[in-house]
Amino acid sequence: MKDQNSVMHLQIDADLFICDVNLLLDTLCHALNSNLCIIVKALDCNAAVAGRDALAKTVYARLFDWLVDKTNRSVEQDLDFEIQIGVLDIYGFECFKLNRCRSCRMQI
């Protein structure tokens, strides 16, 4: 670990993932090869960064999917019409052919 700040951040991450801090550290810093036996190999800096980034992308993707699902469930979509919620991301707003007002059912 680089410094105490890194140790603190690793502990926070482990708490959020609900896992052991040493297991998280081993997962981010070591590779396991398994043909007939287990070989633990320390990752170089670039491989460790790539693994960290892949984990972050997976977490954000799952969080986004959860947020979309939660939003869709909270809207309680009526089968008679569609409700669309625009989400601004790095690519901009999505464009929909039809938007309707839920309370008055008028086309907007």
Rank of each mutant, 00 (worst) to 15 (best):
L36D: 15
D80N: 07
L24M: 08
K2E: 08
R62Q: 09
A54V: 01
S6V: 06
N46Y: 11
L16Q: 05
I85H: 05
D53I: 06
F17A: 12
I108V: 13
N5P: 01
I12P: 00
Y91W: 03
I83C: 06
L23D: 15
L10R: 09
D44N: 15
N5R: 09
L67H: 07
Q11P: 00
I83G: 01
I39F: 04
D26V: 02
T71D: 05
L25T: 10
L23V: 14
L36T: 14
M1P: 06
V49A: 13
A42M: 12
G86I: 00
S103G: 13
N35S: 13
L98N: 13
A14R: 01
V75K: 08
D3G: 03
S6L: 07
K57T: 04
K70F: 09
C104S: 02
K70D: 10
G86Y: 02
K41H: 12
K70I: 05
A56M: 02
F93D: 00
D89L: 03
V40C: 09
R52G: 11
S74L: 02
V68K: 11
T58R: 10
D44S: 12
F64K: 11
K57G: 00
C29Q: 10
L23N: 12
I39Q: 15
L98M: 10
A50G: 02
Q77N: 11
E76I: 01
L67E: 00
V59A: 03
G86P: 08
M8R: 11
A56E: 00
R52P: 03
G92C: 00
I90W: 02
C37K: 08
H9S: 06
I12K: 11
I39H: 14
Y91K: 05
G51E: 03
D65Y: 07
F96L: 04
I85G: 01
Q4P: 02
E82F: 06
A56S: 07
R105T: 13
L23S: 14
S103N: 12
A14Y: 05
W66Y: 13
L36E: 15
F64C: 08
D69M: 13
N72Q: 12
I85F: 08
A61F: 05
L88A: 07
F81M: 10
V21R: 11
K97M: 11
L32D: 07
T58K: 10
L67S: 06
V7A: 10
K41S: 15
